[in-house]
Design a protein around this nucleic acid. Structure first.
Length: 371
DNA sequence: CATCCGTGGTG
DNA sequence: TCACCAAGGAT
């Protein structure tokens, strides 16, 4: 058998193996207080969180920062306090409430998942990995997180934080995503039978506050004496990642028709693909090179009001914005008039809020809940 | 399995 | 400023 291509770091004899107990002791003192979380003190009293809240927070937290999620989580919880409430909600209202959070397939799947649990599971989330992973929008990570945090199932919960912590702890040189299976295996060996929910949350807190991507605070880490990367002195360079493809720039045209009362002409995008199910103003497709030719939604005194730029996950977008003030008239095609007062609460993605702002000079951003 | 899917904070 | 990347999932 050939040795692995990457350097297999040897743990020095004076280095203790990383123990769940050391991490949990740290967590008991330093756990973050988060709106969806049950504190370690309460969990020790046998109190487990509402699976609905854990599910909702976990879906929102997919590729999204805690700071961005907090306000949305509180808004959703206030509006739909339980799974049956969300299952009964109109889908467009859920999309509108999600607007600005990104990755809108999450909102579509959130609604679909709520309906599936209401219909097929009597309104209660399954407590097994298999049952959870069969639901829309719940993959390996979220299934493990809900099982561990909401039901104290000793599942290996591996998110971006855990990947970083484990890659450093064991000095794994293989780049992501190839190293994922190895990280999953090692995480499983670390995960304790007792307090697996707190262990999962502790791993994520450690990654978010101590074992950070840049400038990790190794001096404060409960596992510093066990960390092979720290022993080697290159914790900050781990985990390795494969180079990502560069982002091309696409171009397009957007038309903002302003009615005398301030209403804006919009249409709903198809369910699948980019910004699926969200609203947009009429315009061209978005292509590399130059904006495609496209007719305005109707004849009017269109004037160019400048360009807006927006960066998506895999391309950069430059939209030329045209605006016109028009009288009251029936909306063309699949469009409808959106009242000015309704803009803030509607399902407009951030890129479209930029477009509307460019054309109206008024802020179209959502007012953030004060936290 | 590689690609597609948003946005905002951060250093 | 800008590259990085965050409690990933679906296809």
């Amino acid at each position: 058998m050939e040795p692995p291509a990457f350097r297999s770091q040897v743990r020095l004899s004076h280095m203790p193996a990383p123990s769940a107990t050391a991490l949990l002791d740290w967590y008991d003192v330093h756990a973050r207080r988060l709106p969806w979380r049950v504190s370690p003190e309460d969990r020790k009293l046998g109190i487990l969180p509402d699976p609905y809240r854990i599910w909702l927070s976990e879906v929102m937290l997919q590729q999204t920062t805690v700071a961005a999620v907090k306000g949305y989580f509180l808004d959703f919880l206030e509006r739909w306090p339980s799974l049956p409430a969300l299952a009964a909600a109109p889908r467009d209202e859920v999309m509108a409430a999600w607007a600005g959070l990104g990755y809108y397939s999450r909102a579509r799947n959130l609604k679909a998942c709520a309906e599936a649990v209401a219909r097929h599971h009597d309104g209660r989330f399954p407590d097994t990995l298999e049952g959870l992973a069969a639901l829309p929008g719940i993959g390996p990570y979220t299934a493990a997180a809900i099982a561990a945090i909401a039901f104290d199932v000793p599942a290996a919960v591996v998110d971006g934080n855990v990947e970083r912590v484990v890659a450093r702890l064991f000095a794994l040189e293989t780049p992501l995503p190839d190293v994922k299976p190895e990280i999953r295996r090692l995480t499983a060996t670390l995960t304790p039978q007792k307090r697996p929910g707190d262990f999962a949350q502790a791993m994520m807190d450690l990654g978010a506050t101590i074992c950070t991507p840049k400038r990790p605070a190794c001096a404060l880490c409960p596992w510093s004496e066990s960390c092979l990367a720290r022993q080697r002195g290159d914790a900050e360079t781990l985990p390795r990642r494969k180079a990502k493809a560069e982002r091309p720039t696409r171009y397009g045209i957007s038309f903002v028709a302003r009615r005398h009362d301030g209403a804006i002409l919009v249409r709903r995008r198809p369910d699948k693909g980019l910004l699926g199910g969200m609203l947009e103003v009429p315009g061209s497709d978005w292509r590399e090179g130059a904006a495609p030719e496209v007719a305005a939604p109707f004849q009017a005194g269109w004037k160019s009001v400048g360009e807006i730029e927006h960066t998506f996950t895999h391309f950069h977008l430059i939209l030329s914005v045209k605006a016109a003030d028009v009288g009251d008239r029936p909306p063309p095609d699949d469009c409808f008039w959106l009242d000015a007062a309704a803009v803030a609460g509607e399902a407009l993605p951030t890129v479209m809020r930029k477009v509307v702002e460019a054309a109206t000079g008024r802020s179209a951003r959502r007012t953030r809940r004060s936290l």
